[in-house]
Structure formats: C-alpha cells, structure tokens
Simulated assay, not measured.
Amino acid sequence: MAGTTQIFGTSSIAQVEPDRITIRGQDLCEDLIGKTSFTHYFLFLLTGGKPSQELVAMTDACLVAIAEHGLVPSIQAARLTYAAAPDALQGAVSAGLLGCGTVILGASETAGVLFSDVLKRRDADAIDIDAAAAVILREMRVARLPVPGFGHPVHKAEDPRATRLLTLAAELGVSGKHIQALQAVERQIESAYGRFLPLNVSAAIPAVLLDAGFPLEALRGVPLVARTGSLVAHLLEEKHNPLGFKIAAHAEKGIAYDGPAPGDRSA
C-alpha cells in the first residue's frame, strides 16, 4: 500500500509523537518529569519495571562511590583532549570514557561475571562456596589472569569505598549470594595467588548491585554513567584552571628516550 512504512523491528523503550513522548509505557511529561529521580529513571529505562527502593538506594550509592577518584587515566585523557579541542566538550567526555576496560572502570563488569561463575560452579559441582571460589581462582592463576576488583595502587590495605558499600547493603537488607561469592573469593585469593589483595570498589559494586536486583549485562553502565558526571566537572574546571598541557609537559619531562640516536648503526 502506498505510503505505508514497512516495520522491520521493534523497541519497547520509547515512542516519540508530536504531542507526547512515551517511555516504557509512561508519559514522560505527565508521569516522570519532576516525579522521579535520575537514578530511578535510569533503572526504569534499563528494566522497564519499577525498581525497588533498595535497588535505587544501592545504585545511587554506587554511582556516588565510583564517579570521582582524582586524576585517574580517564580524567587525564579527557583533560588532555579538551586542552587540544576546547570547542568539543563531547569529544573530551568521550575520550575519558573510551578507556573503560577490564583494568579501569570496566572491572565492575568482569568482577560481577566472576561472582556469578563462582555461584554457578558451587551449584554445578554441589560444593560449598569457598571450594567453588578456590577452584575458579586456581584456574585463573594457571591462565595468568588477574582477579578483577582486587588490589589497588593506593588503597593497599582497605578500599574505604568498598567497605562502605558492603555496610550499606547490610543496612538496606540486600546482602545476598553475590556478596557471599565476593567474600569467598576474598578468603581464597591469598592461597590461590600467594599474596594478599584487598577488594576494591570495583568488586563491591557488582556484588551489592546484583544482590539488589541490577542486571548483570548492564553492570559496565554504572561506572560509565557515574564517571560522565565527574568528567563534565573536570572539564569545566579545565576551562578555568587548565591542567591538560601541564600534565603533558610533565609527561614529556618525566619520560626518558631510550631509543637509538640518529645514525647509530649498532641499533
């Protein structure tokens, strides 16, 4: 039929019409704006359902915990990019987020998968949770894999952010099997790896969120959303108190060249 648009797929998140915007079955202007917090809305967007008060509170706490941690690589990348292109705030924010991987920020996701695997191994092999954690950690050690969410260059004895999140989970009544898996990994890690590795915030975040009902597949989104707010704050400061070129200058001075000299035939 002439003028008919062929439907090739569906989405249940949003519909935009001339006089109305529908989000997951709710009217954006009538039901959501001014009536919900961003954290509640974020969870609603993810799941399509009304999140529990405990999940909202736990997610809110995790967003606050991971948003800011000084001049870490993501912040430096953003500041250096903004120094070079102050007309492109979005580019500088993107630069700060692109390094979210298994070492920085993205470790929350891989730690969450680890805790899920510990629980699956416990159930599949009908063993206790400490034995399951020990088996998986030994496999990781043989494969020369780091343990996500454990160890920290600054917080060598204890990461206070992790301690607070676990305490809050207990206060909210959402401590469950994923926190138990974290604790089992914590108990077994020194035996498997031969040294003490303190849990850091990237281990606490997935444990408390998964126990509160957050979807495993979206865990990496939490540090991304949180760090975006911090990046914008750093870039506003960069505009009025530039550090980007100073960081670059110190790197240039602090890194020695050890390559061959021009004409050096021995290289």
Rank of each mutant, 00 (worst) to 15 (best):
A65H: 02
F44P: 06
A169V: 00
L235P: 05
V232G: 09
T228H: 14
N200F: 00
F42K: 01
A261W: 13
F38K: 04
M1P: 13
V147Q: 12
A2L: 14
A212S: 14
A212F: 06
I189M: 14
R195M: 08
T36A: 11
K156H: 14
M58H: 11
V208P: 08
G70M: 05
G149P: 14
A133D: 01
R144Y: 08
R138C: 08
A84R: 10
P223L: 07
L145G: 11
L55C: 00
A203M: 06
R24M: 07
S108G: 13
V118Q: 05
Q188M: 02
Q6T: 13
V225C: 14
T22N: 09
L80E: 07
F38N: 11
K50Q: 15
A88D: 15
A57C: 06
P242Y: 15
D159N: 12
P206M: 14
A157R: 07
N241C: 07
G48P: 09
A61W: 00
S191T: 13
L114P: 05
L182R: 07
P18T: 15
S202M: 01
P215M: 05
A249H: 09
D125Y: 12
P153H: 07
L105I: 06
R24V: 06
P198H: 03
L98N: 11
L137W: 09
D211R: 06
S11Y: 04
G244E: 03
G259A: 09
G99N: 03
K120V: 13
A107G: 05
Y257G: 06
D264I: 12
Q26V: 03
A218H: 13
